[in-house]
Every structure is written in structure tokens, then in C-alpha cells.
């Protein structure tokens, strides 16, 4: 009888464990850490390639062709002469203002689209990367797209049209950069 009792107790433990396993609370908390870093340390880097482009205090790429640019009158960058902007009735082409690179951890090719909110600020790429044919300042467009392979980098140039403006005017705008895996919808 003692033995039977022991078995019953053991079975009892088993049953309690079994029931407990099905009705336990399976709430779990897991941690997520996300670092906010400057544009040139991003997974999709935007790297200034000229003094006209720089990374601001917040970590955002800024392109500034004016005396407000912190690189303005920086002796080490442009000794001797500093322009303070672009002239009215003129067109300016700046090759390779900034680079877009693909440092994603997923090892995928990305399709990058850059659009300018200002119609007087157009974009182009070198080396025929632009899918729309915006391969030089002559064929610059308000919106361009191109592929960036894993570890790859594409330079973006800017075409500024001053002819519509008077001296003292500002050409302000925002560049919106969108990137998605190249196999998304072909």
C-alpha cells in the first residue's frame, strides 16, 4: 500500500505539471536596441562629397550653397576665395555632391529613388546609373532612380537653375530618398 501511495503521489505531481504546462502564462519580454546615427553612418549612407554638403548637428545631410554653410570660408577646404551663392540667370552643375551607399546587413541590391521638392533643383548621376537616363547635368531630372549593389556607392550631382530667380532669392527644397530591395515589384 505504501508503494501504491508513492506512485499515486508521483502521478499527482505529473498531472499537476502537465496541467500547469498548458495553462501557464507565456508572456515574454525581449529587448530591442536601435541606434540613431548620422546620415553617413547609416545602413544606407548619405555621404557628403563636397564642402557644399555636410552633416548637421542632428546627423542629417544638408546641402547648402550659401554663406550659411559651416564650410564657408574654411581655409583648409577652399583657400583664398569663397562664393556666397549662385548668380541669377545662371545654371550651375555640381558633380558628386553626395554619395548613396548600400551598407545594409541583408546583402541585397537596393533601388534608390531621389526626388527634389524644388523644380529648379535637378539631379543626375555619373556612369549611367540613373534608370531615367539622367546621366549628366544636361539630362538632369527632378526625380532619379538607380540601383546600388551590396557594398556599392553611387554619386549624385545637382543641377541648379538660377535663371528663374533674382539675386536675394533662395532655392529651398527637400530631397526625399527612398530605397527598397531591388526585387520588390521588379
Amino acid at each position: 500500500m505504501k508503494m501504491l501511495g508513492a506512485i499515486m503521489v508521483a502521478l499527482g505531481i505529473l498531472m499537476v505539471l502537465g496541467v500547469g504546462a498548458d495553462f501557464a502564462d507565456y508572456t515574454a519580454s525581449r529587448s530591442a536596441h536601435i541606434a540613431v546615427v548620422a546620415d553617413d553612418q547609416e545602413l544606407i549612407d548619405l555621404t557628403p562629397m563636397q564642402p557644399y554638403a555636410y552633416i548637421d548637428d542632428r546627423g542629417v545631410l544638408v546641402i547648402d550653397f550659401s554663406a550659411n554653410n559651416p564650410n564657408y570660408q574654411n581655409e583648409s577646404l577652399n583657400p583664398g576665395w569663397w562664393g556666397i551663392g549662385i548668380s541669377p540667370d545662371s545654371r550651375y552643375n555640381f558633380n558628386d555632391v553626395f554619395n548613396v551607399s548600400n551598407d545594409l546587413w541583408d546583402n541585397v541590391t537596393i533601388l534608390v529613388t531621389i526626388s527634389s521638392s524644388n523644380p529648379f533643383v535637378e539631379l543626375y548621376t555619373h556612369n549611367e546609373e540613373s534608370l531615367e537616363g539622367a546621366w549628366s547635368s544636361d539630362s538632369a531630372l527632378q526625380e532619379i532612380s538607380f540601383y546600388v549593389y551590396p557594398g556599392g556607392e553611387v554619386s549624385v550631382g545637382m543641377h541648379l537653375m538660377g535663371w528663374a530667380n533674382d539675386a536675394g532669392d533662395w532655392l529651398n527644397g527637400t530631397l526625399t530618398i527612398h530605397a527598397e530591395p531591388a526585387d520588390n515589384g521588379g
Partner: peptide
């Protein structure tokens, strides 16, 4: 709402 240098520390909760 963030700037470079910020660290977003989040908790992912899973319940059944």
C-alpha cells in the same frame, strides 16, 4: 523625433 546619438531602447512583449 530623434537625432544622431539617440538610442531607442524598446521592449517587445509577446503574450499568448
Amino acid at each position: 523625433e530623434y537625432s544622431a546619438g539617440d538610442l531607442i531602447e524598446d521592449i517587445v512583449s509577446i503574450s499568448v
